[in-house]
Design a protein around this nucleic acid. Sequence first.
DNA 1: CGGCATCCTAAGGGATACTG
DNA 2: CAGTATCCCTTAGGATGCCG
Lengths: 128, 128
Amino acid sequence: MVMEDGTSTFPRHIADTKACEIRDLLDRLADKWSLLVVELLGDGSRRFSELKREIDGISQRMLTLTLRQLERDGLVTRTVHAVVPPRVDYELTPLGASLLAAIEPLVGWARTHRDDIASARDRYDVSA
Amino acid sequence: MVMEDGTSTFPRHIADTKACEIRDLLDRLADKWSLLVVELLGDGSRRFSELKREIDGISQRMLTLTLRQLERDGLVTRTVHAVVPPRVDYELTPLGASLLAAIEPLVGWARTHRDDIASARDRYDVSA
DNA sequence: CGGCATCCTAAGGGATACTG
DNA sequence: CAGTATCCCTTAGGATGCCG
């Protein structure tokens, strides 16, 4: 924030406030798969093998790790059904759903500005 | 999307549509520093050394790489002033500003649900 | 089916030294 | 001041094999 006298109240190190929040955000979502899983579960609960099939290219290991972390953060519930063969369902919690809502603007931005970025890249690359 | 008859029009592989957009998004922003730089520049233009000072822990190398990529994607402009010592200013483009706006809901979410996540984690960790 | 445990590599990114 | 170049190390994450 810039005051009328020209001084600024913005912290010299953004680490103080915003940076911490953003860091949290990145630590939680900025991996290769978390956002994809959240987005998928937004469409409804899924079992492990369904997620594995629907998320192109994910390994079993990474799906497990991703789901565990989402569960730990309270974004996803894990429900084990005592049947044979075993069946495990994953579902967004209300908190997870609220995250999904907060992500939508960003996904929308990516969609609408996809071309802008592509052309900006082309311009940059030819000039270089 | 789930139809009235219970069938779903949601693609089996989300790679088809949403996943691509999300992938784009992640490729662009899911690194350690890009979001931090964008957020900082949202407060106004900065020169290289200012960014370096304000972003706690970033190396000269990574700041350069991050800024180059943001410039390439058309999110940031780089202005070199022909003075000595050299002075280079970085500023958000309109596209960059629109991205910042799209990020705000997410940053807000992180702030409001910070405690929810922390307590969810504690619960998970003690039960494990 | 839904996982762990192990191994292994590719890439991200820090530290340092040099330059216009 | 604002980079570039080089080296090096840590980590994400893929492949594979085993188990309840």
